[in-house]
Design a protein around this nucleic acid. Sequence first.
DNA 1: AATGAATGAGAGTTCATTCAT
DNA 2: AATGAATGAACTCTCATTCAT
Lengths: 199, 199, 199, 199
Amino acid sequence: MIDSEAPESNKPDRRAALVAAAYQRIATSGFEGLRTRDVAADAGVNIATLHYYFPTKEALIRSVVGQAMHRFLEAMPGEGSALEQLRTHLHVVARLLKEDQQLWTVMGELVLRAPRDPDLAHIFQQSDAFWHRTLRDLIAHSIEEGVTDPALDPDGAATLMIAAIKGLSLPTARGLQPEQTDQVFSQFERILGLSTVEP
Amino acid sequence: MIDSEAPESNKPDRRAALVAAAYQRIATSGFEGLRTRDVAADAGVNIATLHYYFPTKEALIRSVVGQAMHRFLEAMPGEGSALEQLRTHLHVVARLLKEDQQLWTVMGELVLRAPRDPDLAHIFQQSDAFWHRTLRDLIAHSIEEGVTDPALDPDGAATLMIAAIKGLSLPTARGLQPEQTDQVFSQFERILGLSTVEP
Amino acid sequence: MIDSEAPESNKPDRRAALVAAAYQRIATSGFEGLRTRDVAADAGVNIATLHYYFPTKEALIRSVVGQAMHRFLEAMPGEGSALEQLRTHLHVVARLLKEDQQLWTVMGELVLRAPRDPDLAHIFQQSDAFWHRTLRDLIAHSIEEGVTDPALDPDGAATLMIAAIKGLSLPTARGLQPEQTDQVFSQFERILGLSTVEP
Amino acid sequence: MIDSEAPESNKPDRRAALVAAAYQRIATSGFEGLRTRDVAADAGVNIATLHYYFPTKEALIRSVVGQAMHRFLEAMPGEGSALEQLRTHLHVVARLLKEDQQLWTVMGELVLRAPRDPDLAHIFQQSDAFWHRTLRDLIAHSIEEGVTDPALDPDGAATLMIAAIKGLSLPTARGLQPEQTDQVFSQFERILGLSTVEP
DNA sequence: AATGAATGAGAGTTCATTCAT
DNA sequence: AATGAATGAACTCTCATTCAT
């Protein structure tokens, strides 16, 4: 259910394989180094077969965008009380930051592409707005529940948190990232008045 | 005035013009769309002239990196008391975020390139480490001066601030950025116990 | 009939056509004037098609080397008695010298390239060694059979003959070559005690 | 007297230096790898200076041809009796073959160029004709003097010798060349009835 | 559904040559 | 006499895309 690549029959899902291969290639080499021939080779098919499924390189990239956004939106808060949702969300995001470096690399490439790609810009605008709204409301609830300092501006705090998470996602100083992530999320807890992210 | 295009003599500085053109092109089209012919055309010279000054495209890119880092490092704290430095630094960075969008776009492209470019990775590692150290020490001094809450972890706070600034630099939702920047820097002030960034 | 351009099926053998075209171009203009675009044009294909079959210009050249060596080695002695082999070999070489000027031009270009191309140097070393060995043994047999003067040094005579044949292959004084070839081969007969090369 | 590069004053002879550098470059890399910039650099001058002395690359090459031919013609027989001249000539040529490999490499490059360069073709035609005439007459005299077998055809023998010398000059099997040269020249002595080339 | 073959357009790079100084 | 700067033309090679099969 999580994976959209789950084959519905035993025949190989070329389409999904190609998207996965493109996703990997972007994570490894960026858009700058994305070659359709490499993608086709990674998926074990001929370059012409790639174009059978995706008329253009751009169409393939769209599908990669879809997959990346899908994976990203899974980290959005689900059910439970506001406090629980906030904790879970932070927890999931922290884990994602540490474990799924590929996702962030691809997201970074997409973000940098957005200014030149109106569709992409729209997608990010939507998802950012949704993320911000969600986080802001959760913080507001947390204040209502007396956990968080009422002097905190939910709007600003949400913006800060999203900005910081995005900043952490950037691939600088790869080796230091886990510690930095922990440091930043500790600050989040402090700001929100939460004791621990991981109980 | 900042701009290097101001001719100090009557002979044009091709080298600088080419770097500037490449810088602009990267800001506009990313590395993905960087073409030496376009750069040469923008600088008003023949493509062969570009190669007269820069043996390879990569050499040109190195110079762009140099210029971007130079511009970035100008925003590092200079003189004055710890509190003053902190205020000034935040002020300068905030203005840079709002006004020099190109710089951040280029920096973003460079950051995404770093994992594939050891030299670049090293440069960012150095500058990040320097930035973090500087900020951490300033926060520590601010605590000593009784301005900032002693419960604040200077290390973690510095990491958070840097991450948030990087996050703000990403080019999503261009239109919203000035407000987001203000929101985030308000949070910084709150965390650090400063009243206002811009008097 | 020797030519490989005779289509054995109705689909054209691009690979062979390209090698043949490159061979011709080298014969006409030397390596100095060898241009992949010309080769592709001669073969009636796009330059990209050339690179489809030969990843680099160098790879194409290797194939030309292969063809030239193949054609050359066909002139090596085959079956029959020593005397017969010797006569046939001289006969074949003499005809090759007179009729297939292209081959010698290409061989000359290759020979001059050998000092800068270890692979080529090795190929020539091998084929020269083989040629010398073969010729020396045939001369030795000819001496045993009482045809050739026992005072003749088979080793030195073989070296002389090979050197002279190579010298004849050089493209100086094109017009005079047939006569010079006949003169030289007459000297060979005299040295070896053979009456006539061509009955 | 032998060296044409002898400076007639204490100022450096750029012209000669450039020709020498071009000569060396051709010997090392062939015409295929001859670059005016390299030549200029080797001569320690700017590329524009090269064009000051030689309007075109071709003009520079002409001068190299001149130098190579000059050096080559020095090996032509000089004074003395026919037998002496023959001996000396063979001796000088043998030494040249062994010691001045560069000369032969350059000559080889020039010979291969001749078919595409009428001027060069003419030069070689002249020098070859002269060489052949000289050698033929010397052999005829040697016969008259009773040293050489009267059955030997001076014309053919001269052709054979020139061909063999040219063949030896080719750069195959560099390591073996001294021995091969000795072998071939021993054959020459045998054919001509001379006892030893080098006493 | 899949492929080998082929291509147009364009990429970075090279090189002999020119020109103002 | 000599040069740094500049260029047009051309080079090898690449890549997304197409097409016959």
